[in-house]
């Protein structure tokens, strides 16, 4: 009976904030019957050694990702705008900036 198995439990992605001042980082994934259980499981699986002070769990199915196949065309537009970087600009020698 597939309804009884972990397989029928959705997959959640787990994000942990290590400490105040840092953003949540992706640490892995796990299966759970619902979001509440996913949080409890995530605490046991990913923060046994005080690795975090806050956890997010997100159903993996809810994530929309860019495709690695499109990587080049998708990110290309940023490549020819070097004037967005401070090193593009000449600063007269001796000026402290």
């Amino acid at each position: 009976m597939s309804a009884n198995t972990a397989e029928s439990w959705p997959l959640f992605e787990v994000f942990v904030r290590a400490r105040r001042g840092l953003s949540h980082n992706h640490v892995g994934s796990l299966h759970a019957p619902d979001a509440e259980m996913a949080l409890r499981n995530a605490r046991d699986v990913y923060t046994r050694r005080q690795e975090g002070i806050s956890i997010w769990v997100v159903p993996s199915a809810a994530i929309t990702a860019s495709s690695p196949e499109e990587k080049d065309p998708f990110f290309d537009p940023a490549a020819d705008k070097i004037y967005r970087h401070p090193t593009f600009y000449d600063v007269p020698s001796g000026v402290q900036m």
């Binding site: 309804a3 009884n4 198995t5 029928s8 439990w9 759970a32 019957p33 619902d34 259980m37």
Partner: peptide
């Protein structure tokens, strides 16, 4: 596993 799945379904 069955109980957890049943609980999740009931709650949803």
């Amino acid at each position: 596993r069955e109980a957890a799945a049943a609980h999740a379904a009931k709650k949803a």
